[in-house]
Structure formats: C-alpha cells, structure tokens
Computed example of a mutant assay.
Amino acid sequence: MSPIRIRWTFLAALAVLALGAVPARAQSSMEWIEGEWRWGNNETGCDSAQIMRVAYGGKYIISSYPDQGSRDSSEYRVLTVVPGVIRARITGETRKDAEGRAVLWDFVQLSEDSFCWRRSDWDPDGCTQPLYRCIVIGPGRDGVAVNGGDGEPWSRRRPVGR
C-alpha cells in the first residue's frame, strides 16, 4: 500500500474518531459487520435484509441479498481495519474518483447495531443513511424462541435500534 493511501486511511480513521462517530466499544476486528442488516429507510424491515459475512480468512466481506437471488451480491477486498472502520474495494469496481483511482468504500460503525457506507472520495463526515442490525430469532435448546422470546416463528427477523 502506498504511503499516500496509508496516510489517507489514518486521516479518515482519525476524522471519524474526532467526530465521535465510533461507538465507545468499537471493535478493531471485523466481527461487528457480520450479520443481517436493513436500511433505515427500508419499509419492509428485515424481510429483505442484506447479509454481510467475513470470508477467506478475513480478506473479504461478502454482501448479499438472498431474497433477491445472486444478482445482488458483492465481494469487498478488505484493505485496512481500524477501530470502527473497515476500508474495502469492491471486486470489479469500475467507478473512479476525481483523480482516476478506483473508488474505495468504508464500513463505518455507528453503534454496535448500526453502520453506514462512506466512499473514499467523500468528505470524512459524509455517510449514507444508516443500516441497522436485524436479530434472527431462532429455536433454543428446547425448541423455544430465543433472542426475544416473543412467540413469533423462529425464522422471523426483527430490526434492532429503530
């Protein structure tokens, strides 16, 4: 990685820290990104959740919408990880920034249950609408719903935080 790119990553992470966008318990690993997520403005809630998973020994993040088939699946090559921010490049990305470089994406952790996307060429405080974690309610040891215990079918997903 070039010194300029390393410097930009450090400055972006520093800006996020200075703006208070990193939650108090921000994780320096990528574990926080794994799970099902919904857009804050998504009226269907978690029924069309986006699934994020860390793959290939932490070198990639795979993003998919299983309810929409394989057409909406992306692979992100992880470039850097600092507390509360994962910087990655979409495999096959064709968009370029003003200087002609491939656009990079930051997964910015807003809380334990929310994050937003930020392009590398946006202002350090620029971010998309937040995405919120969906909790998967599943059967417990005795077949009883866990993680909420509200009696809903185990396959039902519900949003956290909003």
Rank of each mutant, 00 (worst) to 15 (best):
W32P: 00
I51C: 03
Q27R: 07
N41K: 14
G45A: 09
W37G: 08
Q27G: 07
E36Q: 10
M30F: 04
G35H: 08
E31W: 04
A26E: 11
E34C: 14
T44D: 15
E34F: 03
E43L: 11
R25F: 05
G35F: 04
G45M: 05
I33S: 02
S48T: 13
A26D: 12
S28T: 14
I51H: 12
E31Y: 02
E36A: 14
M52V: 01
A55F: 00
A26Y: 08
N42Y: 10
M52L: 07
W32D: 00
S29E: 00
N42H: 12
M30W: 06
A55V: 04
A49D: 07
E31G: 02
S48C: 12
A49C: 11
Q50G: 04
T44S: 11
I51T: 08
D47I: 07
W39V: 03
E36G: 09
E43D: 14
S29H: 01
W37C: 05
S48K: 15
G40R: 14
Q50F: 02
Y56M: 06
S48V: 11
C46D: 03
E43W: 11
M30Y: 04
E43R: 15
R25K: 12
A26L: 12
V54C: 09
M30D: 10
A55M: 02
R53G: 07
G40Q: 10
T44Y: 12
Y56W: 10
W39L: 11
Q50Y: 06
E43I: 05
R25N: 12
E34Q: 13
S28P: 15
N41L: 13
S28G: 12
I51W: 10
W37S: 08
E36T: 06
Q50K: 07
I51M: 10
A26T: 05
S48L: 13
W32V: 00
R25D: 13
G35I: 03
M52I: 00
R53Y: 07
A55G: 01
